[in-house]
């Protein structure tokens, strides 16, 4: 498998890969212990970067919003905008981007290293399917940790927004809390979680694909990690746009 054969070949190979992963998911054997181990490692690695990246966003929204809402004398509505933006939009998108940066690149680098060292071939020789043992656990792990992290980052974003608005900018605490849930519904939380699950699964797939296609030694490992992150960020933004257009059109 060479890396440079044009986008059409890559797309076809990716679809092929996707079908193979789906087949592995449906049929046994499953390596559940390996899946749990991967989830444990990725969760530990992602927790701090994802939290640190998403928490400032709540503060920035509050900080820029407070001036504008004051201009129109509707400070109280600040929290409804903050909650809508965080629940629906910024928490899922940014959490997924950070999961791509941390978990995606580390999965791609790990699989790429195994490929370059011939360990993938060694697994196949021992009649352990590398797809089942290496790729599928990463895929399942990303699928599960992305929405879990989204719950955390949603809470963090709201807290940091509250801190900035109420503690630093002196918006009334009662008005902030009263309006917080006036615009968001449980549907918004589900939409955020569904988006994160979709993006997380795609991150795991793309990382596994890029890792298995690594060629060219140590430099190739860096390229695999890099291309995973770039591809997934593009995918997240593009899909996110179409989802929000669809939701607007459906009136959800």
């Amino acid at each position: 498998m060479s890396q440079r054969r044009g986008p059409l070949e890559a797309t076809l190979a990716f679809l092929d890969f996707f079908a193979a992963v789906l087949r592995c998911l449906v049929t046994g054997p499953h390596f559940w212990l390996e899946t749990l181990r991967t989830m444990d490692i990725l969760m530990r690695r992602c927790l701090i970067p994802v939290g640190l990246a998403v928490a400032p966003v709540g503060a920035v929204i509050a900080l820029q919003g407070v001036g504008v809402f004051r201009m129109f004398g509707v400070e109280g509505l600040l929290s409804s905008m903050l909650a809508t933006a965080i629940f629906r939009q910024y928490s899922p998108a940014l959490a997924s981007v950070m999961v791509a940066a941390q978990a995606g690149s580390s999965i791609a680098a790990r699989i790429g290293t195994m490929k370059v060292r011939g360990q993938i071939d060694a697994l196949a020789v021992m009649s352990v399917d590398p797809l089942r043992y290496v790729v599928v656990p990463g895929f399942i792990a990303c699928l599960i940790i992305a929405p879990l992290l989204n719950v955390l980052t949603t809470a963090l974003g709201l807290v940091s927004g509250w801190f900035f608005a109420v503690v630093l900018a002196r918006v009334d605490h009662g008005a902030f809390v009263d309006n917080l849930y006036s615009q968001v519904t449980v549907t918004d939380l589900w939409i955020g979680l569904a988006k994160c699950t979709l993006f997380g699964g795609a991150i795991g797939l793309i990382a596994g694909f890029a890792g298995l296609r690594t060629v060219g030694g140590a430099a190739g490992v860096g390229r695999a990690a890099n291309s995973t992150v770039v591809t997934t960020i593009i995918m997240i933004l593009v899909i996110d746009y179409f989802i929000s257009l669809l939701l607007l059109w459906l009136g959800v």
Partner: peptide, 22 residues
């Protein structure tokens, strides 16, 4: 070896993103 390149790339992406956002 090759694993070191992967680790360096991963850390560069994550640390620079977090630092820029903060």
């Amino acid at each position: 070896g090759a694993a070191g390149v992967g680790v360096a790339t991963n850390r560069a992406i994550v640390h620079s993103t977090v630092v820029c956002i903060v």
